[in-house]
Amino acid sequence: MTAPTDDRAAVRDAALWIELLLRQFPELLHELAPARRSPSAPPPDGARPHAARGRTRAEREEALRVEQAHGLTPSGPTTAPLRLHVSDTIRDITDGVVELDEAVHDRLRLPRPRRAQVPERLLRVAALLGRASEDAVLAAHIRDETRRMARRCTRALGAAEPVVRVSGRCPWCDSVSLRAFPARHAVLCVNPACRCADRDCDCRTDPAHRHAWTQSAWVRLAEESGADLGELAGATADTAEREVHR
């Protein structure tokens, strides 16, 4: 593959990651706090109206920061706990998009971008992808950053990691349990009963352990499992299209 083709692929993937962010970031804002409970609904068992407590100082400060940054107030009653892992994700993506927007403009020698909300900044970056395709370093940076933020957004929303079934049998347990994980660029055996011959392997003591093969081990894995090497490479290809359009 030639360098120009690589650059075009990076820009194409970046556009797809931006598409995913534009779709999921608003959902993330709605997930910031639990939904408001109907006033007519009976209180939980054992709960008393006067026992409810307000938000902690940290939660109040976080709610104010989000309201100021995005022009909204997290939904739910004031006694509802703030979902801090979602709040952290919103902060990370917001900061990341601001930095990316400014970096793209700086690299292309454009005036510093004006302040804007996350969706507008993402659209601004997307509009500059054509010019960014002429700069291999910039194109790769946009792709990598938008991919990182999109995947974090997806995880915060509770979406499962993409998995691709591949042919062949696990060399250790002989099960048809080999799966490719594109986000990790690895192949894993998903059989929880799989045990290997290595006495020092964690599979003997950790029930959550899964045998994994990174790219350097795929040739041997294909030989020992009967899998097709080309299929392994294709299934583990880190492409935006697979994740955005699944």
Rank of each mutant, 00 (worst) to 15 (best):
T214W: 08
R147F: 05
A233T: 05
L16A: 15
R83A: 09
S167M: 10
R53C: 05
R179N: 10
T146H: 02
V244C: 05
E31Q: 15
D45H: 09
T205D: 12
A227M: 03
M149W: 15
N191V: 01
R169W: 08
D198V: 12
E31S: 15
M1D: 10
R184V: 02
T205F: 04
G76S: 07
A3M: 07
R121N: 04
A217T: 06
L82W: 03
Q215C: 00
F181M: 11
L32N: 14
I90M: 07
L22I: 12
R210K: 10
S177Y: 05
R115C: 01
E161K: 07
A233S: 05
P119V: 03
P162M: 03
L178T: 07
D88S: 04
D198M: 10
P182Y: 09
L188D: 07
E102H: 06
V219N: 06
A159S: 13
R60D: 12
L157V: 08
A3T: 11
E19K: 14
A80N: 02
S216K: 07
L138E: 05
T79W: 14
I142N: 03
V176F: 10
A9M: 14
L32C: 11
A159V: 13
L72C: 02
A159T: 11
R114W: 03
D174I: 00
H141P: 00
L22M: 13
T94V: 01
G54M: 08
A183R: 14
E99L: 03
G71W: 01
A197Y: 14
L123E: 13
R246E: 09
A132F: 04
R165K: 15
C170D: 04
R169I: 08
H245G: 00
P43G: 04
V166W: 07
T146Q: 03
P111D: 06
R53D: 04
L29T: 14
H30I: 09
D95Q: 06
T236W: 00
R165M: 06
W172T: 06
C173H: 10
A126T: 03
R48M: 09
A103N: 01
R107S: 08
C170A: 08
A116D: 12
G130V: 07
G46L: 08
H105G: 02
R143Y: 01
A217R: 11
D238H: 06
T94C: 00
T73M: 08
R242N: 00
E224C: 02
P4G: 15
E59S: 10
T2S: 15
D206E: 12
R155P: 03
R112I: 01
E120H: 04
L129P: 07
C173Q: 11
E19D: 15
R199Y: 02
E67Q: 10
P26A: 11
H70A: 10
D135K: 02
L221M: 04
R220C: 01
V97L: 01
S133Q: 14
C153G: 12
G54T: 12
V190T: 15
